[in-house]
Write a protein that binds this DNA or RNA. Sequence first.
DNA 1: TGTATCCGATACGTCGATGCATCGGACGAA
DNA 2: TTCGTCCGATGCATCGACGTATCGGATACA
Lengths: 205, 205
Amino acid sequence: MPKGVTKRRPRTRAALLQAALETFAENGFHATSIEQICERAGYTRGAFYSNFSSKEELFLALFDEHSERIVRRITELIDSVADTELSLQALVEVLSDVEPAERDWYLVTTEFTLHAIRDRQAAWVLAQHDARLRAEIARCLTAHLHRTGRTLSVDADELARLLIAIREGGLAQSYVEPEALPPGQLERNFLAPLLTALTAPAEQR
Amino acid sequence: MPKGVTKRRPRTRAALLQAALETFAENGFHATSIEQICERAGYTRGAFYSNFSSKEELFLALFDEHSERIVRRITELIDSVADTELSLQALVEVLSDVEPAERDWYLVTTEFTLHAIRDRQAAWVLAQHDARLRAEIARCLTAHLHRTGRTLSVDADELARLLIAIREGGLAQSYVEPEALPPGQLERNFLAPLLTALTAPAEQR
DNA sequence: TGTATCCGATACGTCGATGCATCGGACGAA
DNA sequence: TTCGTCCGATGCATCGACGTATCGGATACA
């Protein structure tokens, strides 16, 4: 904690971030006013400008925090899979899992993706995060497949891109029509044959 | 043309719609003011309010127009594939094609998807459109596979959902990092093995 | 060509959001 | 407990976007 910073400061900062996440998820970035965020957090705009210089800066802080969390979660998943079963089925189950809290993050990060497509700087930030994510996924996949005696016949990074595309594209459809396509269903139904088709038994030596 | 409607009206309406598409693609829906749209179209807000009652209404008109166009394009694709080769490769090429103009529509429709996730009414509109789209895709797939003597071993509608997910999710990554992942690359690299794995030779009788 | 109607331009009032300057209470060190 | 510093609340001025009422030119038709 920097010198001269009292302990209530990180609390209000965290409250503002949490309130911002919820409000962004509810109304979108541009549609939410700074005032709305402060109201939900139980503060006034004075507190906001004391902690952030703009809504954009707060958004970036939110995204960074989320990035860390996601990568950490993926890493944990790797370990959990490593400890338990070896079956392809177990891997598919892990990859198909969608937590309820993911919805808010989906809304926020997708909006950030749209922003990144229009803004080179945001694109760079997003690309950095995505690269880390893919690296973890690729590591998980190759490790798991290796232990089951199979090997990838395609580029691991590009396969990770495909898995992310299926998840993101699937979530979009699921959140629009939750009854028609439960979250994770595409992964549950298609990942096993897909991974089987894209791997081959490793040479035994 | 309704009685008492002069011929310049549809022209200005079309100009406003086109300008709106470009401005929405450039800045996003909420970030663009009605004034900006009018300015780009070469009109004033007077013209806007004479043609639309709100930015939302204009957006819906834009989306409807786009929906029609997309379904028509898919149908044309079906015919073009039907006329030419039978190979799986030909089908994959068609499904991997991404026109440059698609970028603007991607930005606009993705933003509409986010809106639909938050708004039941918009979700219904989007679901209707997507259902038509999937129906066309499913028709295309089954027809093509039938002619090549194979048959689907999974639900065609859900496979269409998967293809859409891959396209949308892939485009997101492509537009953020065009050099790292050229548009359509995921389809080109993974569709052939995927479709092969999900089909089986039809019983001959 | 004349005229009634349609359509888009202009001007104005309103409102919400923003950012800042200032103030008073809370916190931490002695 | 006291004092200096930190932090969030409050009040204010500004600005951009919105919607409407009204006006003048364009259009269609006789």
